Amino acid sequence: MKKLMYSSAFYTLLGLLSGLFYREMSKAENFSGYSQLNVTHTHLLVLGTIMFLIFMVIEYQLTLTAHKQLFNYFFYIFHLGVLVTVAMQFINGIAAMKDFSVSPAIAGIAGLGHIMITIAFILFFVLLNKRINANNTNRL
């Protein structure tokens, strides 16, 4: 459970720092348009902070960590997916503010981050199903 709590706190810190970075960078560059840097703050707070708080509540109710290997796959793939996705948002956002062009590979890497998040959610629902079935069996 502490892994989930520390993860939530980590993403809260990253989310707040990314919001600060966006505000200061947009002021420094005198930038008022849209860039992907605008949404990194929200992505980190929602996919990181809020999701890990939700995972923590579900862990408390269903003990997801009882399936240690499956839980770890989900946990680390989710982290990797969120961090890769947000890193590519940072690169695209900074490039937009600096008026640089970026390689289409950045979009491809961001797509891989989204795929990792999708795989992590699939693993999460498999894990959730196993724990619900285990809890129902224990109640009989």
Rank of each mutant, 00 (worst) to 15 (best):
31 F>E: 05
60 Y>I: 13
38 N>G: 01
92 N>D: 04
43 H>E: 04
19 G>M: 06
23 R>I: 09
22 Y>H: 13
85 T>N: 14
50 I>K: 09
58 I>C: 11
53 L>M: 15
91 I>Q: 01
97 M>L: 13
46 V>Y: 13
69 Q>G: 14
63 T>M: 14
78 F>T: 02
37 L>S: 00
107 A>C: 02
77 I>H: 05
17 L>M: 13
17 L>T: 10
85 T>E: 10
15 G>F: 10
58 I>K: 12
29 E>R: 11
68 K>S: 13
51 M>Q: 14
40 T>N: 10
92 N>V: 01
71 F>Y: 12
26 S>G: 03
42 T>P: 05
42 T>C: 05
55 F>G: 02
54 I>K: 14
38 N>K: 02
106 I>N: 01
52 F>P: 06
13 L>S: 11
18 S>W: 01
29 E>W: 03
86 V>L: 03
41 H>Y: 08
81 G>M: 08
69 Q>P: 12
69 Q>V: 15
44 L>N: 11
79 H>I: 02
68 K>V: 10
78 F>K: 07
73 Y>D: 10
64 L>N: 07
22 Y>W: 12
98 K>C: 03
88 M>P: 00
44 L>K: 09
18 S>L: 01
32 S>N: 09
25 M>W: 07
14 L>S: 09
94 I>H: 02
44 L>C: 07
60 Y>T: 14
37 L>Y: 00
96 A>R: 03
15 G>M: 10
83 L>E: 11
95 A>H: 03
73 Y>R: 15
84 V>F: 02
13 L>R: 09
70 L>K: 11
42 T>A: 14
30 N>Y: 08
50 I>A: 13
91 I>T: 01
92 N>K: 15
49 T>F: 15
60 Y>R: 15
55 F>R: 04
64 L>V: 06
33 G>R: 02
88 M>F: 00
48 G>A: 07
25 M>G: 00
43 H>M: 04
74 F>L: 07
34 Y>N: 00
56 M>W: 15
38 N>D: 09
100 F>A: 01
21 F>Q: 03
41 H>L: 02
65 T>R: 15
41 H>C: 00
104 P>E: 11
25 M>I: 08
31 F>W: 04
107 A>G: 12
107 A>V: 06
106 I>K: 00
29 E>L: 08
26 S>N: 10
87 A>C: 10
77 I>W: 04
33 G>S: 03
79 H>Q: 05
79 H>T: 02
81 G>F: 06
105 A>R: 08
42 T>G: 13
18 S>K: 03
70 L>T: 07
47 L>F: 14
72 N>K: 15
47 L>N: 10
29 E>V: 04
53 L>Q: 13
101 S>I: 10
62 L>A: 08
106 I>S: 00
101 S>T: 12
19 G>V: 06
106 I>V: 09
21 F>A: 10
23 R>H: 11
91 I>K: 02
74 F>S: 04
91 I>P: 00
98 K>V: 00
99 D>T: 05
49 T>M: 15
77 I>G: 06
